[in-house]
Design a protein around this nucleic acid. Structure first.
Length: 753
DNA sequence: CAGGCCGTGCTTTTT
DNA sequence: GCACGGCCTG
């Protein structure tokens, strides 16, 4: 056990050695916060605190995983509970489900299920989803839950048409949606927190027990806690307020999803006995970068005075690169990165590009591809978000919790069983009337009015299958999953298919089976469907970022929090983008402060070299507009560099090349294959080019090899007509089909020979 | 039941 | 200007 504190700064040491009583650690960027937290846990245990009395809470699975790993390294085999808020709440709720009216085998709905459920509920309330977008309603409900406003409270507050029509609508939908969840014995993500907060608030004895059980509570990224999380933490720290929170108000960037920066700002009022430790020494960035970031954040009022100090070198000045437009910007950045790497000064790994909105990444990706710069994008569809994986989980959920309506509706006709919308609606309506869950209704399908013979037998078979699966629950998860795949013949439609997408889907299903097997192995006799589902439902995006893959990393500013890179480029630092136009519209200074923090977070990711970019004009909402200089640019210290590159290809040509390259290889998936000849352009591109009166080197002609996204490779056998009426006839290799297309509209792509 | 067409609206994202 | 969702038709 490492209790040696010689390698710590005086303030780090203060935090590490603090044992009893509330502690606020204000940790600036790059100040070694995670290290301090883990070392403090080690110190607690070293001072005689039983590990099981320690609870460390983070926001993300990634953070929890890292912390657990580091605690394990210092304290092998210590049973410290390191968990995310949601997972912690899921466990508590599992144990005390009855307190909030659930059964312990409740299931967790993801956002997709949640939206589907909302649609159903709205349909039942005769609400038009075009006028009232389910997404927006979901957002309102989520906001209410984060603020611990229950459905009843909401309905009461906006009863009798008080409030605007949105509030009035939410007042109808929210309670109905909660009833749907309760009938499904299910919760959504926000419920996990809200139910636990309510449970702790209303059951003093239980709260007392848990307060006693978790005597030492640590909360990371405290500036990101919402009201529900705040209440939960408080409830666990009354009799034993050995609460240690770490965070940085200057890095609070999630106000829009309910985070309350006030929680950290008022910590000392909440706990007057609190000790406050500031970690101000920065081990990451150069002085030039820190000075600039510090100057920026100093313009905020919602903060705690805190400096950024470093012993690092002065380093290069922060640069503001000015480009005429976004094409030059993307091109200039790609070229610059290429040069840095070619000169041996940097590797691709060293570089990250941040942007305020995802849409800005498109041109960047194209430019990077053109310059043969390998890159990865931090985004992408999470593994557990893929339809086939969610279907598999749907079966598992149904086996575990037969009341789960969202799961039922998800898988009832997948794979296709001829149980379409009409049959489903009839069954659902009858189930509601009879007060049955959907599986029970399916079991008794012959009693449902107007159901076809086929539907009755289909529902019956489905119900029997789920019943069997529920009984089979005792075995391993892997076996259960395999038998689901067998009994449903789920993957049959894809087996041996030449379509790449279907092969991928097949692979995803197999990957889930592998994950189940892994889970079984890890937990041995302790393996449980409950545990596996919890892991799957609460797992976010799989760690798709690889810091050793030799690629430039692209991500939003939000995603950049907690990371660091030698070279950082932040693009589009312009009024309307950063600060974002929506933060300006309400003229609410606190929203602009959050935008400023966002830039601050981005800037402080840089270790050696920081560049911001700005353009003269940029397409916004499809319109080309003159750019206005960002408010923030005048607040920082930087050196302006005019980047007027005239040697780059004209815009239209770049676009076409980029388009075809992106067809060739979907963004962010795997390494770029350089040696394969890129596709030139699509037929539509060729025609559009012609229309613009620009000479195209080659149109379609007989004998040309082409690719169609649906039919695959083929050869042009015939061409006819001119201009918009030009047609191309292609014979496809795979299917031996011959098809004729309007050249201007077809997605045909010539393949470089 | 898929595919095409039209209308809309448009940060940020975890769990 | 583009992407997505809903609706309609072959």
């Amino acid at each position: 056990m490492n209790n040696d504190v010689d390698d710590l700064t005086p303030s780090q040491r203060q935090a590490v050695e603090h044992v009893d009583g509330p502690l606020l650690v204000l940790a600036g960027p790059g100040s070694g916060k995670t290290r301090v937290v883990t070392r403090r846990i080690a110190h607690l245990v070293g001072s005689g605190v039983p590990p099981r009395e320690i609870l460390a809470i983070t926001f993300t699975n990634k953070a929890a995983g890292e912390m657990a790993e580091r605690v394990e390294a210092v304290l092998p085999a210590a049973r410290v509970w390191v968990s995310t808020f949601h997972r912690f709440c899921a466990r508590l709720l599992r144990r005390h489900a009855a307190v909030v009216g659930l059964q312990s085998n409740y299931t967790i709905l993801d956002t997709g299920d949640q939206r589907a459920a909302l649609r159903r509920v709205m349909h039942a309330l005769d609400l038009d989803p075009v006028h009232y977008s389910p997404n927006r309603l979901a957002w309102h409900i989520s906001t209410a839950k984060n603020d611990l406003i229950t459905a009843e409270a909401f309905a009461r507050r906006y009863a009798d048409g008080i409030g605007d029509h949105w509030q009035a609508t939410v007042a109808r939908v929210y309670p109905a949606y909660q009833q749907w969840l309760l009938d499904s014995n299910a919760v959504d993500f926000d419920d996990l927190l809200m139910h636990v907060a309510a449970m702790l608030a209303e059951h003093e004895e239980l709260r007392g027990q848990l307060d006693e059980r978790f005597r030492y509570v640590l909360v990371d990224e405290y500036q990101d806690t919402n009201s529900a999380q705040y209440q939960i933490v408080r409830a666990l720290s009354q009799r034993h307020p050995n609460l240690c929170v770490t965070g940085d108000p200057d890095q609070s960037i999630y106000g829009w999803r309910g985070a309350r920066i006030a929680n950290i700002l008022r910590f000392e009022q909440d706990y007057p006995a609190a000790r406050v430790v500031r970690l101000e020494d920065n081990f990451r960035s150069t002085q030039a970068i820190l000075r600039s970031a510090d100057a920026l954040i100093a313009h905020n009022t919602q903060r705690k005075a805190k400096r950024l100090i470093t012993d690092n070198a002065e380093g290069a000045a922060v640069q503001l690169l000015r480009f005429p437009d976004s094409h030059h910007e993307a091109e200039g950045i790609a070229r610059k990165i290429g040069e840095m790497v070619e000169s041996g000064e940097r590797t691709y790994n060293d570089v990250a590009i941040f942007y305020r909105v995802n849409s800005l990444s498109r041109q960047l990706k194209h430019a990077l591809r053109r310059h043969r710069v390998p890159f990865q994008v931090a985004a992408g569809v999470a593994f557990y978000d893929r339809a086939e994986v969610k279907d598999m989980l749907g079966y598992l959920r149904l086996a575990y919790n037969p009341a789960d309506r969202a799961a039922f509706l998800r898988v009832i006709n997948s794979p296709l069983r001829g149980l379409g919308k009409t049959s489903q609606d009839r069954l659902v309506a009858w189930a509601q009337r009879e007060g049955l869950d959907f599986i029970a209704a399916a079991r008794r399908a012959k009693e449902v009015p107007k159901l076809s013979k086929r539907a009755i037998s289909g529902f019956g078979k489905f119900a029997r299958m789920i019943d069997d699966l529920s009984l089979a629950d005792a075995g391993s998860i892997e076996n259960l999953l395999t038998s689901i795949i067998e009994r449903t013949a789920y993957t049959k439609r894809w087996e041996g298919s030449p379509v790449e997408k279907e092969q991928q889907q097949l692979a995803n299903v197999q990957e889930l089976v592998a994950a189940a097997k892994q889970f079984d192995t890890t937990f041995g006799d302790e393996t449980s469907l409950e545990g596996f589902l919890e892991q799957a439902c609460l797992a976010g995006e799989t760690d798709s970022l690889d810091d050793s893959s030799g690629q430039v990393t692209l991500m939003t500013l939000h995603a950049a929090k907690g990371l660091e890179f030698p070279v950082v480029v932040i693009v589009g630092v312009e009024e309307g983008l950063l600060p974002h136009e929506r933060s300006l519209r309400e003229n609410d200074p606190s929203e602009i402060e959050e935008e400023r923090r966002l830039l601050f977070v981005g800037m402080t990711r840089a270790q050696h070299h920081l560049m911001l970019t700005e353009t003269g004009r940029r397409a916004m909402h499809g319109r080309d507009v003159m750019t206005i200089r960002s408010l923030f640019i005048q607040e920082i210290e930087c050196e302006t560099v005019e980047c007027d590159e005239d040697s780059i290809l004209p815009e239209w040509q770049q676009e076409q090349i980029a388009e075809s390259l992106s067809q060739h290889r979907p963004a962010g998936e795997g390494p770029i294959e350089f040696d394969r000849k890129p596709l030139l352009m699509t037929a539509a591109d060729l025609m559009n080019g012609t229309k613009k009166g620009i000479e195209i080197p080659q149109g379609f002609r007989a004998g040309m090899l082409v690719r169609h996204p649906r039919y695959g490779r083929g050869t042009v056998t015939l061409t006819d007509g001119f201009g918009a009426r030009r047609t191309v006839t292609v014979r496809f290799e795979e299917s031996d089909l011959t098809k004729t297309f309007h050249a201007a509209k077809s997605p045909l792509q010539p393949i470089g020979t």
